[in-house]
Amino acid sequence: MHKQSDALFQQMDKDNSSGASREEIAQFVSSNAQLWAKLSVKLNQPAQVVIQVATRVAMELASGKEGQAALDAELSPEQFHQFRKKYVLDSSGSEEFFHRAVFANYDKDNSGELDAEELEQFLDTIYESRSVVKGVITLPPKEKMRDAIMKQCDTDGGGGFHTRKSVAS
């Protein structure tokens, strides 16, 4: 498995820098539909949009950094291998990746939380198209869902839906 990761890394590292940039990781993400296709379908988003979101999540998970620092990072071959092993090849890791990417799709400012507007956009997607939960569950009225989310996830009383920590737990 390490040999496969090394070979993929070598193909991806177009500039031979021994580090994978966001653009190089975006190429990897783009060519691995299991990282973004489900997002595209479930969120009814164009492939280009969800590939960008999936790349952001991949950079954060692989580098251990957040926000712009993650996007500016150069991943080492070992970081790439660990990311691929945990989030691409392992089914439970793939599911975690999907959940983080769904969240990141709505966290437009990359703050690590959904503010009131971002949460409203998330709820609109669920309630208008039911794409994320289509055929899976019956939803309560939107206002009850919003109240339940805020009660559970607004840990500091600031009105945001915090997830970097709550998704990981």
Rank of each mutant, 00 (worst) to 15 (best):
H81K: 14
F83I: 06
S92H: 05
L43K: 01
E143R: 10
M150S: 07
P77W: 09
F98E: 06
G64A: 12
V29E: 01
D107I: 06
D15M: 11
A101K: 00
F83Y: 09
Q11F: 08
V132N: 05
M150Y: 08
M150P: 08
I25F: 10
K134S: 03
K108T: 15
A47E: 06
S5F: 08
R100D: 07
H2V: 12
L89F: 15
E60Q: 04
S31V: 03
Y127L: 01
S169I: 13
R22L: 08
A33C: 04
G93W: 02
T125C: 07
F161K: 02
S5Y: 09
S129I: 15
E96P: 08
P46D: 10
V88C: 00
Q34C: 05
G93C: 07
V50F: 01
I25G: 06
V41M: 05
S31T: 07
S63G: 12
L39A: 00
T125W: 05
L119N: 06
D90K: 03
G64R: 08
L89R: 15
V57T: 00
A54T: 01
S94A: 12
T55I: 04
M145T: 11
N105Q: 08
D13A: 07
L114F: 10
T155I: 14
Q68H: 13
K151C: 10
L89P: 12
F28H: 04
M12K: 11
K142Q: 09
Q45S: 07
F161G: 03
E117L: 11
Q4A: 14
A168W: 15
S131P: 01
V29S: 01
F98M: 04
Q45Y: 07
D109C: 13
K144E: 14
S76L: 10
D109R: 09
Q79N: 00
F80L: 06
E143I: 12
D15N: 11
V132L: 11
N44K: 15
E120T: 03
V132Q: 04
R84H: 08
F98K: 03
Y127P: 00
E66T: 15
L123F: 03
T55V: 04
A168D: 13
E120W: 01
L75K: 05
E113D: 15
L61F: 06
Q45G: 03
L71S: 14
Y127D: 01
F122A: 06
Q68N: 13
V57C: 02
D154T: 10
L123G: 02
L114P: 07
A47G: 06
K134C: 04
D15V: 12
A58K: 00
H99F: 13
D107C: 11
S169D: 15
E24H: 09
R100G: 10
M12N: 15
A7L: 14
P77I: 15
D109A: 14
S18T: 08
R100S: 09
V167D: 04
A62S: 14
A148F: 07
R164I: 15
H99D: 11
G112W: 03
S17K: 05
L61T: 03
G160L: 09
V132K: 03
P141G: 04
I51A: 00
Q48H: 11
Q68E: 12
L119P: 04
K86V: 07
T163W: 15
V49G: 03
L61C: 04
Q52P: 03
D109E: 14
Q11D: 10
V57F: 01
G160N: 09
K42W: 01
L75E: 02
V132S: 05
E78S: 05
L89T: 14
D115W: 12
V57P: 00
A33V: 05
E120D: 05
A168H: 14
H81D: 12
